[in-house]
Design a binder for these strands. Structure first.
Length: 578
RNA sequence: GCGGCUGUAGUCUAGUCUGGUUAGGACUCGGGCCUUCCAAGCCCGCGACCCGGGUUCAAAUCCCGGCAGCCGCACCA
């Protein structure tokens, strides 16, 4: 029965142009979908709303970066080495297994992260055989989930289709930091395609090989993860499912954000604020509150870069609780790694609230002795000495009475009487640190599917998508009650006028009026205008509300104002019922 | 990636076992008639054997391979 809903929704989605499987005439390829005309409209309206949340309301800025990335980027991010699974195949029954799982199952040892050669060796020395048929295993190979390509005519440079949009934000970090004038926190978003060559994607739009992500990377001070608008979120209730409770097989808990933070369930205000935004957003696109929950990653499933991670899950009856948004504290993993690989300083200078006075030992060269001893090379040597660790110098001068220095291939020996040490007081105004990154990552395709599934309504008489009226693809249908020339003429004219006023409006005269309402409902058009006999007399039309089939009369001249107020939620339909 | 089952108009399906005229029906869709508000009725029309190879005088039908879907296993940083 539950499965029926999915099937009915997908049936209509296919029939009416929301979702199609791609490359159909060539029998299709698993893991790819086309958004049909209505699907594309719906998806755009949902991403537009997302932009409204993150760009307008949160004050983040959007960027757009390439979907193809050079190998270096993904080497630094860890994807080349870690976005892969070690696989092995049974030579006898040809079954394919995760090599590390096979070993863990057989020996109880945790071998995650070991190189393939090691794994191969462990399998052979432990004489591990296929748990299914007892056959022997092939050597271990990596299956990397990234699509590989080559860049340039000669194909010398390896490239990959990006597995997440996030990296495109980390790379220009220095430019972004300058754009935001050097101050934390700030947020940058990107909406775009990401690619993962899944082994066998089978759950339709739930697991795609090419999918749309909307991600925000919020760069925060690692020492201050409080959120300035926390009080706005504090009293909202969330259904949380902490890792500990999952392991103890307990039920999720319904708890206020304030209590979740004070109880230490969620790592920081910055992080939980994103859970709050996620909930608001999902409700705003029409997902009911009771099918949204927040599940913390178990320590074993947490990605290598994260210290706390929560999946926002929606109950999609056929598939169960499915992650549609992942919200992680990625710490400084990415920036640090890109900093090391690129040799660029990706740290931020954070000023202390008040300057600190720091007592510090410094080296004071005695120029009267340096000059005669080292002549013109003195400044160079002193510069190097000043950069070295003071304690190291002190140690050397105290024990050996001298310090040996190699500089540009030459050796210098500095006697201890050439230097003195002095304790000075220095004023330090701040420090350079790698920001931490709070990352909400939205799977737009899964959200579009969730919206369709959870807005689908069915009774004996009709089926319709109860889409929120500001995300419905078609906003208003216009019909003549019957196909009489005068009514048809007025109806077409009303449709055209509504289009000029900016409404996505469709005209339909085929079949009976009932059939046309049904067609319009089926794709979730929130309002229908009907030109009838009274229209000819008094220039009014009926305006029909999709959700309850109720109708009111509206003067043609006021139609666009009324529709505008309805669609922007300034008024509700019941406000204009008599 | 492995195994089982399956693949006929937009959708559901008959025909496949037992090869043989123009692949039949229903719904949908388009055009028309009718119609004073919720998938009515009547007429007309569009529209299909997943792809490739083989067997055969002849293949939707039998055989092989591929692709896709469903289920199970595996996988899902």
């Amino acid at each position: 029965m539950i499965k029926m809903k999915h099937d009915r929704v997908m049936h209509i989605a296919k029939k009416r142009g929301f979702l199609w499987s791609s490359f159909e005439i060539y029998s299709g390829v698993a893991g790819f979908v086309d958004y049909g005309p209505l699907g594309a409209l719906l998806k755009n309206k949902i991403t537009e709303k997302w932009r409204n949340y993150f760009i307008i309301r949160e004050g983040f800025y959007e960027i757009e970066s390439p979907t193809i990335m050079p190998e270096e980027v993904l080497k630094a991010s860890g994807h080349v080495d870690h976005f892969a699974d070690p696989m092995t195949e049974c030579k006898k029954c040809l079954e394919v297994f995760r090599a590390d799982h096979i070993i863990t199952d057989a020996t109880g040892e945790d071998v995650e992260g070991l190189p393939n050669e090691k794994l191969t060796k462990i399998i052979s020395t432990n004489k591990i055989t296929c748990p299914r048929c007892g056959g022997r295993f092939t050597k271990v190979w990596s299956y990397n989930l990234m699509f590989q390509t080559v860049i340039g005519v000669k194909g010398k440079k390896t490239g990959y289709m990006r597995p997440e949009t996030a990296q495109g934000i980390f790379i220009p970090f220095k430019r972004l930091l300058r754009f935001f004038r050097g101050k934390l926190p700030f947020g940058v978003v990107q909406i775009g395609k990401a690619y993962r060559n899944e082994i066998s994607p089978r759950q339709g739009v739930i697991r795609l090989r090419e999918f749309t992500q909307a991600e925000a990377e919020i760069f925060v001070n690692p020492k201050n993860k409080n959120h300035e608008s926390f009080s706005e979120a504090a009293d909202e209730k969330l259904i949380l499912y902490p890792a500990e409770d999952q392991m103890k097989n307990k039920e999720p808990i319904n708890i206020t954000i304030k209590k979740a933070i004070s109880g230490g369930l969620v790592l920081s205000e910055m992080l939980i604020y994103q859970l709050f935004i996620a909930k608001k957003f999902l409700e705003d696109v029409g997902i009911p509150e009771d099918v949204i929950r927040f599940r913390q990653h178990l320590p074993t499933e947490m990605a290598h870069y994260a210290i706390d991670c929560w999946d926002v899950e929606i109950n999609l009856d056929k598939f169960g609780w499915i992650e549609v948004i992942g919200i992680a504290d990625r710490t400084d993993f990415d920036l640090k790694s890109h900093s090391e690989h690129s040799k660029e300083d990706l740290r931020v200078f954070i000023e202390f609230n008040s300057p600190k006075k720091v007592k510090k030992l410094v080296i004071k060269p005695d120029m009267k002795k340096f000059g005669p001893s080292f002549k013109g090379e003195s400044p160079k040597i002193i510069k190097v000495l000043e950069k070295l660790e003071v304690s190291e110098l002190v140690h050397s001068f105290e024990t050996k009475k001298q310090f040996e220095l190699e500089l540009e291939g030459k050796k210098y020996t500095i006697p201890s009487d050439h230097v003195e040490f002095e304790e000075i007081e220095e004023i330090v105004r701040g420090e350079k640190v790698f920001p931490h990154v709070i990352e909400p990552s939205y799977g737009i395709d899964r959200i579009v599917y969730s919206v369709l599934l959870h807005s689908y309504m069915e009774d004996e008489e009709r089926s319709y998508f109860k889409l929120k009226r500001d995300i419905a693809p078609v906003e208003v249908s216009v019909f003549p009650l019957v196909n009489k020339e005068d009514m048809v003429k007025i109806a077409v004219q009303i449709r055209d006028n509504l289009r000029k006023e900016g409404f996505l409006s469709e005209y339909d005269s085929s079949g009976t009026i009932g059939r046309r309402y049904a067609r319009s409902d089926e794709i979730g058009v929130p309002f229908a205008v009907t030109v009838d006999h009274e229209t000819l007399e008094e220039n009014t039309v009926t305006l029909r509300n999709r959700d309850d089939s109720k109708q009111v009369r509206v003067p043609i001249l006021e139609l666009h104002n009324v529709l505008g107020d309805l669609i922007s939620f300034k008024i509700d339909f019941k406000d204009i019922e008599n």
